[in-house]
Simulated scan of single mutants.
Amino acid sequence: MKTPFHLAAVVIVIAALLTGCAGGANGGADGNGSKAAGASGSKEQAAAAKANDAPDLSKVTLRIGQTGWPNWELGFKEAKLDDTPYKIEFSVFQGGNNQLLAIAANQLDLAATSEIPPLFAALAANQGNFKVIAVQRGNTLNQELVIPAGSEVKSVSDLKGKKVAYVANTTAHYFLIKMLEENGLTWQDIEPVQLPTSEGLSALLSGSVAALASYGNSIISARQKGATELASAKDILSGNFLIEASNDALADEAKKAAIADFLQRLSSFHNWTRKNQERWAEIVSEQTHQPYEEALGTLKEGEKQRSVELVPISQEAIASLKDVADVLRKVGVLTEDVDVPSIWSEVFAEQLKNLKSP
């Protein structure tokens, strides 16, 4: 398979520039301005440019983080997109906040998070050492506030004075605030318990908390163990999931080229899942222990709500993030204002514009 984004465009531009320079140089050197000599020289210099300027991706290891499901490593293998000219180290984190902590520590090159973690990371030392480079539009299913089997809680308003587990600095944090507001409660009206996804699920099932605000596999597992939805965030969240790259990776030409290639493959993977829903549902079922029909139904429902696709940075996406920041700032969860536009980078804008839409 041909490797996308092999910097061909860059090489062509450099070659064209060198062609002009070569003609002038030869004209001065031999006194006759020979077009043949200029053409020969331009070809040689173009070849040299290609050999010398194209990064050697074989020496690159791209460290990529992700949260829960879908598992890109399995997906790339199934879709036959794993023949990368560079190495990939995939790591799964319990939240996007932890991915950005890893980027800040230069332990990760690429992250995939919701809109919430970058806001907190931007207030850390060195502004978190990252830039948002792309938006992954997707569905907002499996983002829920759930209660355990047999709970006496019937509505969000019933949570007043009760313990509610949530994953800090994530979509769960944000949509729990919004759900409380929509039901006449504030953050101060509940006893919030900050827990990672797995511990939050354990707390819910043991009865240590009255409800759990979470996402992904923990919500799937909670349902399998009898938990039920108290409220859904599918109409609260924007569906914008952000791709962040470390400043260190963006400053490295070879890693930047590898990231460009990876974005193309990620887009191709999304297209593959749309065309192979039954096969992907089988894999999801195997990995999450969901019944196959339920996994397939979730895929189809998610596609109906919003197709997953990579899109370029837009003013609408930046405005959406600003709205989230304003909400979190208003309730005191964000302690400082965030310069939202400053954390975005359009370094891959042209590549993203050329990706195929679903």
Rank of each mutant, 00 (worst) to 15 (best):
L81D: 09
V132H: 08
G128S: 02
L110F: 12
K80R: 11
L81V: 07
L74D: 10
Q107A: 14
N97M: 09
I133E: 04
L123F: 08
S91Y: 05
Q99R: 02
T113D: 01
Y86R: 02
E78I: 11
A122S: 10
G75W: 11
A134P: 06
N98G: 11
A102L: 05
L81R: 07
L108T: 03
G96N: 03
G95V: 06
P117C: 00
P118W: 04
A121G: 15
N129Y: 02
I103E: 10
A125M: 14
A104S: 14
A125G: 14
A104C: 07
V135N: 01
V92I: 12
V135K: 05
Q94K: 09
A134T: 11
L123K: 12
K87D: 12
A112M: 14
A112D: 05
P85T: 08
E78T: 15
E115W: 03
K77T: 00
Q127W: 01
L100M: 15
A111F: 00
N106V: 02
E115A: 12
A104F: 00
A79G: 05
E78H: 13
L123Q: 15
E73T: 03
I103D: 06
A112R: 12
A102M: 02
A121I: 13
L101S: 13
A105Q: 10
G75L: 13
Q107W: 13
I103T: 11
K131V: 01
L74Q: 10
A134D: 05
A105T: 07
L101V: 13
T84V: 11
D83T: 05
A122Y: 01
F130G: 01
N97F: 09
Q94A: 13
Y86D: 00
E89I: 04
I88R: 09
K131M: 04
G95S: 15
A134I: 08
T113Q: 01
N97C: 10
E89D: 09
A121Q: 12
A124P: 04
P118S: 09
K80T: 10
A124N: 08
F120P: 01
V132Q: 00
L119Y: 07
D83N: 12
P118T: 07
L101G: 12
T84A: 14
P85M: 06
L119I: 06
A122K: 06
A104K: 09
E73P: 03
K131I: 04
L110P: 02
E78D: 13
N97K: 10
I133L: 00
P118E: 09
L110D: 03
I88P: 09
A102W: 04
A134G: 10
F76K: 08
K77P: 01
N98T: 14
